[in-house]
């Protein structure tokens, strides 16, 4: 029978080194891809995932309910991601980007490759406020339910829904300003 998080954490706190390995193996993939779905950059996602694990393990004694390790760990990572987005401040100004001669309407529609469309979508997602960006990416790219997103971001389910609604609206507007969609 697989050991629960509670058992593993207790063993780790008692000095069992193997428990550390099992816990990291169990969550590093899902945590990394969740972070990556929000910030897209592989190296930055790796750095944030590592920091989230280090912070979690250094504060394990403070975690009251050891069964909630997963959601606690993900919450740490999501908060670090939000801080990272705020610090980076690369909310690209679409208009300034357009004035640099990057208008995709100049190109014939058929010539626009899928990879180019991805680039524009990334750019549009980058311009969203951190909360909307988190909700939109977690929903569209990771397929999380609104309940899961609300739990992860510590907000109400309704707030998650409205953030998603306004996020999509804004995304469409940005893409329209870029001239990618009508």
């Amino acid at each position: 029978m697989a050991l629960t998080d509670h058992d593993l954490i207790t063993a780790y706190l008692n000095g069992d080194d193997r428990s550390f390995e099992i816990l990291v193996d169990r969550y590093q993939h899902s945590l990394y891809y969740t972070v990556r779905s929000i910030i897209f950059d592989g190296e930055e996602a790796k750095e944030i995932t590592q920091r989230a694990f280090v912070r979690a393990f250094n504060n394990l004694k403070r975690l009251k309910n050891k069964k909630n390790f997963r959601s606690w760990l993900f919450r740490i990572a999501i908060n670090l991601t939000r801080d990272h987005i705020r610090k980076r401040k690369t909310h690209h100004s679409i208009k300034s980007w357009m004035t640099n001669g990057n208008n995709p309407t100049d190109m014939p529609e058929q010539a626009m490759l899928a990879s180019e469309i991805k680039h524009y979508i990334k750019l549009a997602l980058d311009s969203l406020p951190p909360r909307q960006r988190q909700v939109v990416t977690l929903r569209l790219l990771k397929g999380f339910s609104f309940k899961e997103i609300a739990n992860l971001l510590e907000i109400k389910e309704e707030s998650a829904r409205s953030s998603f609604h306004f996020g999509i609206k804004r995304l469409k507007k940005q893409l329209s300003e870029m001239g990618i969609v009508p």
């Binding site: 779905s37 990879s115 469309i117 991805k118 979508i121 990334k122 790219l141 969609v181």
Partner: peptide, 14 residues
């Protein structure tokens, strides 16, 4: 556009 872009993004992050 949305579907294509998101599909590509999904591929990239996964």
């Amino acid at each position: 556009v949305l579907a294509t872009g998101l599909k590509e993004l999904k591929k990239e992050i996964c």
